[in-house]
């Protein structure tokens, strides 16, 4: 899916924070169910054609979270069966799986988010909040691979002179420590060059400005509006109490009242936005090509 990544990073951030935020703060089974499938749908469309190696881990997490709750919590009135004098209740089981759904769907929302948010985009969003922090992050992103690479070089260099031994654990530790000391010396000495280079290019000569390759266009404004309208609607309905659902001591609350149905519709629409914009773009291309 390319349509979503073409928007301004702020749009992307607002979208994912809203869908995940709503899922996190509204403990409503139907809404979470929608969120769960929506998050999977969006994540797999974003990563079309790529292997998801960690899906087994998340399935395990889902089952674990769902099953652990009834084992440790014995609230609720409907007892299913008793294990070692501990009652396992329907309510606890339902609560467990609802919260598992919440956790896993939020994780998948953030996984989708991180697929779209490259470091450039993340820095842009942070830069809007604090340019200083953004520069610091950018430098950190530059230095981490640099140091990792240097550390590897130092180890190889010392090994080839017989100064890096791994015969036993104390030797390995000592050798690594020495390599680390060498890295420390190297980074301090060469950090001076970086500092010089920054100063030579006017760092600290006054107020800095902040440049990014992204600009906020009309289509971004439209996208933000279209995202925020259903979000505000869902929040409004939530505040009116129509989405309330209680698990203990007995599950109570009407899941299918009029307000709640509106909320589900809005939330589903929100989830579909990336897919709709993607499909719309594809149709546009098709029609353009057929005209040629």
């Amino acid at each position: 899916m390319t349509a979503l990544s073409e928007y301004n990073p702020i749009v992307i951030a607002i979208y994912f924070l809203s869908v995940a935020g709503l899922a996190m703060f509204i403990m409503n089974p139907v809404l979470l169910f929608v969120s769960f499938f929506g998050s999977l749908l969006v994540f797999y469309t974003l990563n079309r054609g790529k292997k998801d190696r960690s899906k087994g881990m998340f399935l395990l997490l889902f089952l674990l979270l769902g099953l652990l709750n009834p084992i440790f919590h014995h609230n609720g009135t409907t007892v299913l069966f008793v294990v070692n004098d501990n009652p396992i209740t329907t309510e606890a089981l339902a609560y467990g799986f609802t919260s598992a759904t919440m956790v896993v769907s939020v994780i998948y929302w953030f996984r989708g988010f991180s697929t779209l948010m490259t470091s450039d985009k993340l820095l842009y969003v942070f830069g809007k909040i604090s340019p200083k922090f953004s520069l610091m992050l950018s430098m950190a992103l530059r230095y981490i691979p640099l140091f990792a690479n240097k550390f590897r070089q130092i180890k190889a260099a010392r090994k080839a002179l017989g100064l890096y031994r791994q015969d036993n654990i104390p030797d390995t530790l000592k050798s690594n420590l020495k390599a680390f000391v060498a890295l420390g010396g190297w980074s301090l000495e060469n950090g001076i060059v970086t500092a010089d280079s920054m100063e030579a290019r006017g760092y600290g000569s006054g107020r800095r400005s902040f440049f990014s390759r992204y600009s906020f266009k009309k289509k971004d404004l439209i996208a933000v509006t279209v995202t925020l309208l259903p979000v505000l609607a869902v929040i409004g309905i939530k505040l009116s109490g129509s989405l309330d659902f209680v698990f203990y001591p007995e599950m109570s609350g009407k899941l299918l009242n009029k307000g709640a149905l509106w909320a589900y519709a809005c939330y589903t629409g929100l989830m579909m936005l990336p897919l709709i914009s993607d499909a719309a773009e594809r149709e546009k291309w098709k029609s353009l090509r057929s005209k040629i």
Binding site: S119, D120, L123, L135, S138, M139, L141, R142, N190, G191, V193, T194, S197, M198, F211, R213
Partner: peptide, 10 residues
């Protein structure tokens, strides 16, 4: 060591 940031454009 003269390079300060992580991306070419930056």
């Amino acid at each position: 060591q003269q390079i300060v940031t992580d991306k070419v454009w930056h």
